[in-house]
Structure formats: structure tokens, C-alpha cells
Design a protein around this nucleic acid. Sequence first.
DNA 1: TACAATTATAGTAACTATTACTGTTATTAT
DNA 2: ATAATAACAGTAATAGTTACTATAATTGTA
Lengths: 138, 138
Amino acid sequence: MANAKYSRQREAIREYLAGTHSHPTAEVVYSHIQSIYPNISLGTVYRNLNLLVEQGDAIKLTCGDGMDHFDYDTSEHYHFICKSCGNVLDLTMDSINHINAIAESSFGGKIDGSVTYFYGICPACLSKEKKNDFKEEE
Amino acid sequence: MANAKYSRQREAIREYLAGTHSHPTAEVVYSHIQSIYPNISLGTVYRNLNLLVEQGDAIKLTCGDGMDHFDYDTSEHYHFICKSCGNVLDLTMDSINHINAIAESSFGGKIDGSVTYFYGICPACLSKEKKNDFKEEE
DNA sequence: TACAATTATAGTAACTATTACTGTTATTAT
DNA sequence: ATAATAACAGTAATAGTTACTATAATTGTA
């Protein structure tokens, strides 16, 4: 891991990921990087995304939609998945890491951490729903 | 969904799932049901597991190891994944559903629920580690 | 019980996300 | 400049899962 060579492709991936809060999948990263490096390979994108995760520069989100999502924000924060549009959003909220202590208190093993995903309807889909409700009333 | 016909295969899957707390994958369910129905198809296992989930009789766990796990216990409880052996364990602990209110308080959308996975070392692996530490000391 | 209608099955093919392989190219150290 | 090595593009392979199809099982009705 100390023997990781620089590569322009990886830095382009890093910069794209650092500049978005959209939690893109590898495929989405791939299609964006193609505008800079038209010949980049999807395998290169996967390898570098995983490398960034291994190095602790990004996190991988497995939120149950069949695709991994990536996030350059490694600080403690939480994610929301909209059941309607599928978008993954950041949640700005107080830390809930006390749940690890709750879990550990009556458990014979060791809790190193936890991952929480919140589900529901995102603000954008919620306002669309309201519009449709209004239409139905007319 | 009201037009679901009885099938012996599905009931065998249901009974196996109801009788274990091991959170088996579809492949594991498949190999167990084969002892009763040697010709059962893996597709049948997948279809019926998903049907049980749709009907609310089981839940699907996507805990990040690449395979979905299934659980016949639909009551509110939490899961732990051992980083060492990969086993999925039930955690007996107080409800943490207050985190949904924490998430919703500063969010413009609607929170319907959340899923939390705890990670660490399970009791069995923890005791193995201790044995190895002891060996290294000698 | 027989029969028609319909859903489920086994077996197989297809699909999606991801990883592995291979010969060539880029980066780095000397 | 050159040698060593890691990364690349392109492609093949893998794993988990879903879709398709002809046959079999289940269910409602006479």
C-alpha cells in the first residue's frame, strides 16, 4: 500500500469524487471520467475506487440497491435512501454512535462500529407527491 | 399476491428458515432443502424467499458481504456481522428506533425507517484470538 | 372424481455488478 | 537514460440473482 504509484486517472477519479455529494456508483464515476479520459476502463475505475477506500480516503456504501456507492466524505455522517427515486442523500444530524455502546452492553463480542441507513421519501419526491395529491382533488 | 398458490417447496423453505437463527443465504437454504427435495431449483429458492419477504414473513439482510441473507424473525431486532468469520448474529438489545426521530428532526423529507448493522468480532472469534495471543507468549 | 384454469416448478439461459487476467504504457528510482 | 515496477486499456471470467419455457402441481368447479 506504501508502493502505490501516482496515476492521472486515479487523481481524476479522486477529484470528481471530492467535488460531488451525489454518492455515485462506479458506473457513474466512469461516465464522468470519460469526458477527461475517453479511453479509461471501467476496471480502472473500480480498482481505484477500491484503492481510495483501502487508503481511507473514501467510503463504500452498500445500501441495498445492488450497486455500491462511493463517498469522499469520510467524516462521521449518515445516509438516507429515497424509496421513490433511489437517490442517496447525506443527513445532517447529531451523532448516534452511542448505539454501539447499547449494542455492546449485552453482547459477548466486540463492537468496532456500525452502519445505519435511513429510508423514506426525500424532500424532492415529497413535494412531487403533494402536487399529485392536489391534482387528484381537482 | 392474494393469488399465491400453496407449494410444498415453499413450505419447506419457510420451515427451514423459521427453524434457524443463522441468517442463511439463498445458496445455504438451497443446499438444505435439497435433502428434502433433491431436484429443487435454485431459482425456486430465490423466488420463494423473495415471496416470503414480499408477504412480510421474512426480511432480507444486505449486510455488505455480496450475498443477501434471510431471516424469518420480522420483529424489531438488530444484526451483527463478524469481521473475522463473516457470521451474521442477532443482537439482543434495547430498541434504538429513537434514531429515526433524530434523523428526521433536521431533514426536509420523511423517514420511514432505518437499518443498522453492527460490525466487530464475535464471541467465538474473540476467544480464538485470545488463545492465539497466549500461544505467541509462550 | 374429473376436468379446466392457473400458478409453481425444474432446468437453463441471461443479466448485472464486479473482479481477474494480459500485454502495453506510464511512473519512479537509480 | 535506463531499468524496475505499478497502472493502464481491453477483455474475459466470476458471482449472485433474475428471467424464460415447457412440464407438473394446485385449486376451483361441475
